[in-house]
Design a protein around this nucleic acid. Sequence first.
DNA 1: CGGACCGTTCGGCGCCGGCCGAAACGTGCC
DNA 2: GGCACGTTTCGGCCGGCGCCGAACGGTCCG
Lengths: 246, 246
Amino acid sequence: MTTRADGRGLAGFAALLADPTRAGFCLTLLDGRAWTAGELARSAGVAASTASDHLTRLVRGGLLVEQRQGRHRYVRLADPAVAQLVEDLAGRAPTPATPPRTLRAASAGAALAYARTCYDHLAGRLGVLLYDALLARGVLDLAGGLALTPAGTSWLADLGVPVEPLRAARRPLVRDCLDWTERRPHLAGALGAALCTRLLDLGWTERGTGRSVRLTRAGRPALAEALALDPSALAPPPRDGGPARA
Amino acid sequence: MTTRADGRGLAGFAALLADPTRAGFCLTLLDGRAWTAGELARSAGVAASTASDHLTRLVRGGLLVEQRQGRHRYVRLADPAVAQLVEDLAGRAPTPATPPRTLRAASAGAALAYARTCYDHLAGRLGVLLYDALLARGVLDLAGGLALTPAGTSWLADLGVPVEPLRAARRPLVRDCLDWTERRPHLAGALGAALCTRLLDLGWTERGTGRSVRLTRAGRPALAEALALDPSALAPPPRDGGPARA
DNA sequence: CGGACCGTTCGGCGCCGGCCGAAACGTGCC
DNA sequence: GGCACGTTTCGGCCGGCGCCGAACGGTCCG
């Protein structure tokens, strides 16, 4: 008899994500923020007791970490690697094919498709655009795997993103992450996170509801100049409430 | 009400790996080869009918692809990305802590720990050693993410591994993959696969039973020279059948 | 101290999913 | 054609898991 592959460990771990409610929690937490147990329960539409049980399992399984404050229990994804894992899995999973039912949901979907956070970095059309522009400007290079160029380091310094501290992290500096909506890569890794934070700090972008992100009035020309792009290339989606296209 | 994260797609996909038998199948198939339904059933210790059902699901879910030949049904992992996913998940899963029961199993474990295939590239002590040596020789570079250096390209050409064709693939050229046994990275990606194949072609390594790989008599000095290492650094584990240490 | 609120524990219900054996189906071989 | 063998389909059994509501324990606030 040959060596038997014991699938129990893997199966037990995968089982954590094999429940729609728990999976939904993880997807919700992909926004990178900490949520309370009650918020997650309401957002998923289950009883508080049910959510409590699920969270306990996810924490014990190492997918989530918790932080108790007073009578609140905050949870968030344990680390970027978990976020990456959830993204990878979700990206492979067949989309449940749930077309938006209401106008409100449709416009929220459009906002998310334009720009959103993917755990701690930027995704959506804007994320992909940024990725492409960084390659075009020679900040990143694809030959032999995605890498930051020397010229890129100084470009980032000009923008106010010091690269050296990021190298110290155990996390990969640059990484590509397949975008769900665009089906093309955007920038992840420590640099992707730092860049996303910096854009928010500069006021070029700001958080909307949920995971959505907006390019601000001031941010649009500023980002276009930094990337040597025409501002029209960064055009946001048609206004919410405008003429519906279908 | 905010946008609800629908976890059904993700959950359904994760459920494929959430069963010990199915997970075991995937781990077994990590050797990169195609197995018949019956072989997998025996190896997992379940009835043929049970295995058949599981395989159908895994294929429908896109994790496996099948190839029917006469009265046999061959299955293998759908693509390298799936293998990567399984590796990532298995790497995070808590080890079931199953100490080897028999001497035979223990020695098989030692052989696997020394060198094995991880889907289509080299893993184990030898895999990690190779990874380190490639970094030390400047074939690979870690600054700004793992990348192949220009010097590395010619080093590979000398070894008989043309890099250009690999760049054309949609698969990342280089990628690090966390080694289960060593808990340190080894080389994956298109280059990791090509290098593994080349070593086998050169006769420097050869396949053992299951996923295990051996460094051949001729391969040891040859590989040591190519990597500018002392041959003793590539020493295999103590012989099977030798004095047991416990 | 009493009330509002957040979270957890407990018991119980219902369903889904994994397992098997028996029988049917197809293929290859004699 | 007849037989052997790999695989699939079909019932049926059983255990586990997700769900809820009710009761309980903390925490914050007035």
